[in-house]
């Protein structure tokens, strides 16, 4: 860039401007996101509790985590929780197709399907706690009317995970529906018509014409919703409040280690491992998508 070489006053001022625009946002991110992350990496190598520390202990926290079973169990649950991603994708894609082809009442339908998105997680979890109530909740009542066994939605593994996944899917699908809807609107009408004129049925047109053109949105939704699934906290915190921590996932475990055990060093090591796993997972996913697109 010429600004660096000439040293002309106007040019050097030009070079400063980008940083002027970036400064406030960067200050916030550095102070409250990046610096704490570096601090957590440091804490993960220390013995640090609510009462003492941090004192450097090297890899001890990591050794203990890797040798123990609790962390692995919760991590395994985090990966099971990823099953919510295909559910969300199917639900939101269906919703988008339905909304797209609903002429009358489409606006009302969109409002109703967006309602869960604007509902605070604590409120959503409160309503589902009522539905999932194990003794006289509506879902178990319906199951017993159908002659099916009752389900311990809030206390028994793996139902604790499934209950929270239902809340996650319920809260999330309206947002992703909008993403797919955008994609559907962008599909050129001529393309669909050409396929229909060529004698392709509705289903084949959808499968071979519409779905491929939604590929960027499918990739986007898969990435965002799976990062969200690995980071899930609110739904578990309220919905299955009181269930043993091994019935939950990694982030609730980290919060438990911090807030109840007061073991900051251990929690930091758990956090660092989780972050590395999310990062690796995301990079692999992006790579796979790129290979498939190429």
């Amino acid at each position: 860039m010429p600004s660096a070489s000439t040293g002309h006053s106007l040019c050097s001022r030009r070079a400063l401007t980008p940083w002027g625009f970036l400064a406030p946002a960067l200050a916030v991110l550095v102070l409250f996101s990046i610096a704490p992350t570096l601090a957590v990496i440091y804490y993960s190598f220390t013995s640090y509790t609510a009462f003492a520390g941090p004192d450097w202990v090297g890899l001890e926290n990591y050794h203990r985590l890797i040798a123990g079973s609790r962390f692995w169990f919760c991590l395994q649950n985090s990966f099971l929780y990823l099953l919510v991603t295909p559910i969300i994708m199917a639900l939101s894609l269906t919703a988008a197709v339905v909304v797209h082809s609903t002429a009358r009442g489409g606006k009302l339908l969109r409002l109703l399907l967006f309602l869960p998105v604007v509902t605070p997680a604590i409120v959503a979890s409160m309503s589902f706690r009522v539905l999932f109530n194990e003794t006289d909740g509506v879902i178990n009542t319906a199951l017993s009317l159908l002659g099916l066994p009752q389900v311990r939605w809030l206390t028994q593994y793996p139902w604790t995970l499934i209950s929270a996944m239902i809340v996650t899917a319920w809260k999330g699908f309206g947002y992703y529906m909008m993403v797919f809807l955008a994609g559907l609107i962008a599909v050129p009408r001529e393309l669909e018509e050409a396929a229909t004129i060529d004698g392709a049925g509705r289903y084949r047109t959808f499968w071979h014409v519409v779905l491929p053109s939604l590929r960027p949105m499918l990739a986007l939704v898969a990435t965002i919703s799976s990062i969200g699934a690995l980071k899930v906290f609110d739904e578990l915190y309220i919905t299955v409040q009181g269930a043993p921590i091994t019935h939950q996932t990694a982030v609730p475990l980290i919060y438990r280690t911090l807030s109840q055990d007061g073991e900051y060093g251990t929690a930091a090591a758990q956090g660092v491992l989780l972050f590395v796993i999310i990062l690796a997972f995301t990079l692999i996913q992006l790579r796979v998508q790129r290979v498939r697109d190429a």
Binding site: A35, F233, V251, Y264, A268, L279, T282
Partner: peptide
């Protein structure tokens, strides 16, 4: 990619 729960203590 940083879950806020992870950085709670330094924050």
């Amino acid at each position: 990619m940083i879950p806020e729960q992870v950085i709670l203590v330094p924050l």
